[in-house]
């Protein structure tokens, strides 16, 4: 790429931008977790999907009915000058896989939030990340009134690979949500090279 004759010098340092996905069923606390750790209130962005689910294609004679707007919440954490971490809450419906692909592309990993009262709600997320080879952890969100299951029980019920960390969390609490992200990062770091190529190749 060849950019020139800009009227200012190239003094801007580009930070490294990274992202993590926060997935899980409807109402499981994705936005709450993003809000708990982000430096600003969560932002919302949208993607307009046509009925065929392939982006904003086929614009001739577009009618409101032929498109669906899918909203995604996301937050940002800036670490110094050179590192920015984005957290994207995935849209909770299976028919938006197109959008999941877009969000997952280049992601470091994912947090799957689970509610023990509705464990099956996180199956689609787990299937998706397993299929993509994207490392993930499961964080069991502690809702009031939910029966306490042991983490082993959850692991069994979800039929998880024993390497996948399962932990408790309270998405409303910053410390707890931080711990979730740290656990994911440690998991990704430990598994690097096993599922994906490290960056050292070629350059």
């Amino acid at each position: 790429m060849d950019y020139e004759n800009s009227d200012r010098e190239d003094r801007t340092i580009l930070p490294t931008a990274l992202k993590i996905l926060i997935a899980g069923g409807f109402g499981v606390g994705k936005t709450t977790l993003v809000a708990a750790v982000s430096e600003t209130q969560p932002l919302r962005t949208e993607e307009v999907l046509s009925e065929r689910g392939v982006g904003v294609d086929d614009l001739t004679g577009v009618e409101a009915k032929s498109t669906t707007t899918v909203a995604m919440d996301f937050g940002r954490i800036t670490f110094g000058e050179d590192l920015v971490l984005y957290l994207f809450g995935t849209p909770g419906q299976d028919r938006f896989w197109f959008l999941w692909d877009e969000l997952a592309l280049g992601a470091l990993g994912a947090v799957v939030l689970a509610d023990t009262r509705r464990l099956a709600d996180c199956f689609p997320s787990i299937d998706y990340f397993e299929g993509q080879g994207l490392p993930f952890i499961v964080a069991v969100n502690c809702f009031d009134g939910a029966r306490q299951y042991s983490l082993e029980e959850v692991q069994m019920a979800l039929n998880l690979d024993p390497d996948v960390p399962v932990m408790l969390c309270d998405a409303r609490k910053r410390e707890s949500s931080k711990e979730v992200l740290i656990t994911l990062l440690q998991h990704v770091m430990k598994g690097r090279g096993l599922t994906r190529k490290p960056e050292t190749v070629g350059s």
């Binding site: 954490i77 670490f79 990704v188």
Partner: peptide, 18 residues
């Protein structure tokens, strides 16, 4: 997308989060 940052980046993220 198919690459991961090196350990120093992960360490900076973990440290930063703490």
């Amino acid at each position: 997308p198919a690459t991961l940052p090196d350990d120093s980046v992960f360490e900076a993220l973990i440290h930063g989060l703490r």
